[in-house]
């Protein structure tokens, strides 16, 4: 990685938090008890965040762990951070397992579009998405995320072919995403994405699409929120990173959010639960 964030020295249960731990703790803090959380796939950070929230302050979150279509409650269970979203061992924590197609099909918001216009009405049981986590090989200052690829020279469709949109364009229609990236650099955080896998907040706010659009862009160094016009604004930096550093290493221009601050470091309790009960193998510290 081009700009490595401050790292924990070793995979031990002591020491400063790693950048992945900081991201996981920040995301966990923003989860509210009772919410429906879809952890997503290929994302040990969001797995850890969701399980941390469920163990700490939010035992009633309805947690679909992984892309593998089951709901887990791990409040009192000993877990290990899985490295894939399909790990069979996760089924030990599952209370229901269903076909993958069903999760995507039945993410439908209760009441259709009316759902987005009011508060949160009662919901059908299989509506499992209030929040989810979406990656991006490119993310721009309007909150558009690109998982498709980067254009090549001379009008070629791809100079780099990304992993594909997976389900993020689907799930965003019913849930609020956090966009996360694991690199904070100008190649990832760009002025304008080459392809759009998932729209930023604007289309959603205009009620053009059914949904809310993304809430944050979170990186190893910082958290962006969105202003009223849907532009990314720097809301927090993690310890050891300045706003100037973010400006120098971000490909889109941004303002500071009115409540900009440095993110409070993970507390001893947060780290101890994270390391002792969720990630004993130190997946987040490698």
């Amino acid at each position: 990685m081009k700009n490595p964030a401050p790292q924990a020295s070793a995979a031990t249960a002591t020491g400063d938090p790693s950048w992945k731990e900081r991201m996981a703790v920040a995301l966990a803090r923003d989860i509210v008890d009772g919410e429906r959380i879809i952890s997503g796939a290929h994302t040990e950070i969001s797995f850890a965040a969701a399980m941390l929230a469920q163990k700490m302050h939010a035992p009633n979150i309805k947690l679909q762990l992984g892309g593998t279509c089951f709901l887990v409650n791990v409040i009192d269970l000993k877990v290990q951070l899985p490295k894939t979203s399909t790990d069979y061992r996760m089924l030990r924590w599952a209370e229901i397992a269903y076909d993958h197609m069903e999760t995507f099909m039945y993410f439908g918001a209760p009441g259709g579009r009316a759902y987005y216009k009011g508060g949160r009405p009662p919901t059908n049981k299989y509506y499992v998405g209030d929040k989810f986590f979406a990656g991006g090989i490119q993310v721009d200052g309007n909150g558009n995320a690109n998982m498709i690829g980067i254009k090549g020279k001379d009008g070629r469709k791809f100079g780099f072919r990304g992993p594909g949109t997976v389900g993020i364009a689907d799930i965003v229609t019913v849930a609020t995403p956090y966009i996360f990236v694991t690199h904070h650099d100008k190649r990832t955080l760009v002025d304008r994405v080459d392809y759009i896998s998932m729209h930023g907040p604007n289309g959603w706010r205009d009620n053009k699409y059914p949904g809310h659009g993304p809430k944050w862009i979170i990186t190893p160094r910082a958290i962006f929120t969105f202003d009223k016009s849907g532009k990314a604004q720097l809301a927090a930096t993690f310890a050891g990173t300045s706003a100037e550093w973010v400006r120098d290493n971000t490909g889109f221009s941004f303002a500071l959010a009115p409540d900009f601050s440095e993110a409070q470091e993970p507390t001893e309790e947060e780290l101890s639960v994270l390391r002792g009960e969720i990630d004993p193998d130190g997946v987040l510290r490698h």
């Binding site: 700490m56 302050h57 409070q264």
Partner: peptide, 16 residues
């Protein structure tokens, strides 16, 4: 931004 640390101190019970 306001992002308060989480704790088990006030953890609600799982709803029955």
């Amino acid at each position: 931004m306001k992002l308060d640390p989480i704790t088990r101190a006030n953890r609600p019970k799982r709803k029955e």
